[in-house]
């Protein structure tokens, strides 16, 4: 099991190297290689999750190490689908290093189980966790597309094309790609929040307890809801949409880690 984990890390790191070299030297073969390596890494990761699940009898998200690993798995899954669908090749130079770092962090952190294993066996909670993480992953990619959008926009507006102009795709593609990520992410987050409410009712006895975690999650959800609403009604796109995607992801990260580590909400046991 440990070997599978190590191999997953190795493949993610190699893939990150491949994507970054692709950014620098722009060879198609490098991109193809990097995506295949990433795919192998992802399959390894799936294998590890299955092994960990059967060993513990519940989803392996009982501590910070496992949570980060699960997070990486979600990002890899969403990225692979997204790459297949939108073909923004350069986004790999953002996603793959992120995966590699998440996994390395997961590897370094101590693997002690803190969360109540009984709780983790519950079905509603499993759905809640999976959808929330996949949603977060989609938003992470939206943030990446937003960053690339701002870089490319700056290159075009400043009238000095430079290094990134040639290497980054068109603004339209980045904007559409980011939007698709946000729509996907928002859908998943919504499902995640609803199942979260249901779980809270089932296992803790009430839907809503004004916990900091809940409040921040709701804030993040509203933030994205506003973003989508504005895009659909008045056509908020481009720069503004990209900035919102980046800020939104910042709120999500804070909800995920900041709240648990700094404010000690009722989810803290998952990230200790």
């Amino acid at each position: 099991m440990q070997t599978t984990f190590l191999f997953t890390i190795l493949f993610y790191v190699l893939s990150a190297g491949g994507y970054i070299s692709y950014l620098i030297v722009q060879r198609k073969q490098l991109h193809r290689m990097a995506s295949y390596i990433l795919l192998i890494g992802f399959l390894m990761h799936c294998a590890w999750l299955t092994l960990a699940y059967s060993a513990a009898g519940h989803m392996p998200v009982g501590n910070l190490s496992e949570t980060l690993s699960f997070c990486a798995w979600a990002v890899a899954a969403v990225f692979l689908i997204f790459q297949y669908k939108y073909n923004i090749k350069i986004l790999g130079a953002y996603a793959a290093p992120m995966l590699a770092l998440l996994m390395l962090a997961a590897f370094i952190l101590p693997p002690k189980t803190v969360a109540d294993p009984k709780l983790l066996q519950k079905l509603w909670l499993s759905i809640h966790i999976t959808t929330i993480f996949l949603g977060d992953a989609a938003m992470a990619l939206a943030c990446g597309a937003g960053i690339l959008y701002l870089v490319q926009e700056r290159a075009i507006k400043s009238k000095k094309p430079g290094y990134f102009f040639k290497r980054l795709p068109s603004l339209e593609l980045l904007d559409n790609g980011g939007y698709a990520c946000i729509v996907t992410g928002f859908t998943l987050l919504t499902i995640g929040l609803i199942t979260g409410l249901i779980s809270a009712k089932l296992y803790w006895g009430r839907f809503w307890s004004w916990d900091v975690k809940e409040v921040w999650s709701a804030l993040a959800w509203i933030f994205y809801a506003v973003l989508l609403h504005e895009r659909l009604t008045v056509g908020w796109r481009g720069r503004r949409s990209a900035l919102m995607a980046i800020i939104g992801f910042g709120v999500l990260i804070f909800t995920f880690l900041g709240v648990n580590l700094l404010l000690k909400g009722h989810h803290s046991q998952f990230t200790l």
Partner: peptide, 9 residues
């Protein structure tokens, strides 16, 4: 070239 970087196609 610029047009394609803005509009994609």
């Amino acid at each position: 070239q610029l047009g394609r970087k803005i509009f994609g196609t």
